[in-house]
Each structure stands twice: as C-alpha cells, then as structure tokens.
C-alpha cells in the first residue's frame, strides 16, 4: 500500500482540511507506515463474524416529550465567530 501526495490531498479535500505541501508529504509517509501496521486486521475475522459498531447492544432511546428550558439565542450566539440579526453569520455560500 503506497499513498501518494495526491491521494492524501484528495482525502484532505474530502475532510475540508487545508494541508501545506510539507504536511502532505510527511503525512503520506506516516500514513503508509500506519496502514502497513493495521493491514493485517482484514485477515483476522472470517466472513461468519458479524461486525460490532459498538460495545453495548444499543437500542433506540426515547425521552418523554416534555418542554424544557433550552439554550437562549443569546447564549447560543455568544461564542459565534460572527453574528448578524440574531443569527450565525456565515461566509459566502453560493458561487459568485
């Protein structure tokens, strides 16, 4: 398994994560080593073994449908990077 810088760049793109050229090449090498170390995982379990996504047997949990005090708009917006008219202000979304 060899990950190229281009492979890592594509993954960084999927993860919405800017990496510098130096970070890309260091990481490509390190990820190769890590993937080599974990590769044998695919050889351990046979087809008859079911996957576990979780340690516990999870069942859906419902709560009583009661009205509770929730976060006020002021509290929710207090740590926002930008606010406008009582809302989160985000950068440009549509292509111009």
């Amino acid at each position: 398994m060899t990950l190229t810088n281009a492979d890592v760049a594509r993954l960084a793109d999927l993860a919405r994560l800017d990496l510098t050229p130096e970070e890309l090449s260091v990481m490509a090498g390190q990820l190769d080593v890590i993937l080599d170390a974990v590769a044998s995982v695919s050889e351990v379990a046979g087809d008859d073994v079911p996957p576990s996504s979780h340690a516990l047997d999870l069942t859906n949990v419902f709560r009583v449908d009661e009205v509770h005090q929730s976060l006020s708009p002021e509290a929710a917006l207090k740590m926002a990077p930008a606010v406008e008219d009582g809302r989160f202000r985000v950068p440009r979304i549509l292509g111009e």
């Binding site: 974990v38 995982v41 695919s42 351990v44 379990a45 073994v49 079911p50 996957p51 576990s52 996504s53 340690a55």
Partner: peptide, 13 residues
C-alpha cells in the same frame, strides 16, 4: 478497513 476492524471488535468482545 472499517468493516474488518468492526469484526475484530466482535472477536475482542
């Protein structure tokens, strides 16, 4: 990767 790892998780349990 993820699928195989989840199976190993079953075996550890």
């Amino acid at each position: 990767y993820y699928g195989s790892a989840q199976k190993v998780r079953t075996l550890i349990i």
